[in-house]
Design a protein around this nucleic acid. Structure first.
Lengths: 193, 193
DNA sequence: AAAAACCGTTGACATTTGTCAACGGTTTCT
DNA sequence: AGAAACCGTTGACAAATGTCAACGGTTTTT
């Protein structure tokens, strides 16, 4: 089960992992299974774990005062589920994270992660690279959200996130894009003409 | 001129800077002055420098196919102007960064920064903390953009970024929020009633 | 001092997007 | 097998936001 994580790290970094390092990683990350709809993080709780998704699909969302869900992230295999603000500031999260499909995770606390980064150079490097890539992706998404129409945003999203379109229902994609499911349905209808 | 940068770093980090480290920082960061409207980065160029703003105000924006500018970031004193995607991937930037007021910067290349992070632990720590804080801020902004109406977004923005509201004209604030200047004007009018 | 550029506002109108209700076809649960 | 929940679509209408043109008051440039 940890093989996918090892592969993920190795592919991210040019430094190879020694077998001691691999053993330490295996010992630190705890396997966890979530059934569909089960919470990984619930609004109001502090996010204690980051989870590497070995198999499955998850979503992160807030719920507004009307009870409407707003999807802020979608995750599939090889993604990390985590509320950074909550886990680094130790504040109650405003988000929920739950399993959209039955999901297998490898979880780790922040303290454990800091420890691993200390002991395993490749891990520290991976985190740095991940953060960097993440910052770039967020910048692009933000830029697209304020600059483009809903239609253009969907086109871009579909082009770059084919697997999400196939894997999550449309109303989640719509919410992720900041529009309603009805609007997305109409956009798609137009687009095919 | 470098005093503000030293103070900025010290305030960010608990490790104090030795005088050798301070000297190295002073020797590495180059002062640069920009007149109002002058470019710091132009679309199509690779972003070679990150700039710490000692005095002044800047903006980062893209220009769409109709020639409309979309503000993605506003900067004032103690902010860093930089296109991360371009400077880390060495790709041509899709953004422009220019001075909104006459501005004094301390600039540094990516290579120099990596070198400083290597030699000065406090610098490495500061960058890590900055990245972390940055990721959180971006997450919040994204979340607000997809979840809230324009009115709510403006209220939140005004509450948390008073100095921007005072310093930049409304049409830039509007663009930053992803709306037109006319819409912002009407929102503000309503809000005061 | 004159001209030009910039800025915020307003009105009239067009476009986009949201809301609400209903439907039929799934899939899931019992 | 039957009931319930889920999902995407559609229509009618409402609300939010954009577009375009114009204005007067600034500030900046010449």
């Amino acid at each position: 089960m940890h093989a996918k994580l090892i592969a993920y790290i190795s592919q991210y970094v040019n430094l190879p992992l020694t077998s001691e390092e691999q053993a330490l990683i295996v010992a630190t990350f705890q396997p966890k299974k979530l059934r569909k709809k089960q919470y990984f993080l619930q609004e109001g709780d502090v996010c204690k774990y980051a989870g590497f998704i070995v198999k499955g699909a998850m979503r992160q969302y807030s719920v507004d005062h009307k009870g409407v869900e707003h999807i802020v992230h979608l995750f599939v295999e090889n993604y990390w589920a985590n509320d950074r603000e909550s886990s680094t500031m130790l504040t109650p999260s405003v988000y929920n994270i739950d399993a959209w499909e039955d999901t297998e995770l490898l979880i780790i606390t922040r303290a454990e992660m800091l420890d691993l980064m200390d002991k395993i150079p490749a891990m520290a490097q991976m985190i740095r690279l991940m953060d960097e890539r993440n910052a770039i992706v967020n910048q692009r998404r933000l830029s697209s959200t304020i600059s483009n129409t809903a239609e253009k945003r969907y086109e871009e999203f579909a082009a770059h996130h084919q697997q999400f379109v196939q894997r999550f229902p449309q109303h989640l994609i719509a919410s992720y894009l900041g529009i309603t499911k009805e609007t997305l349905s109409r956009i798609r209808k137009q687009g095919t003409k």
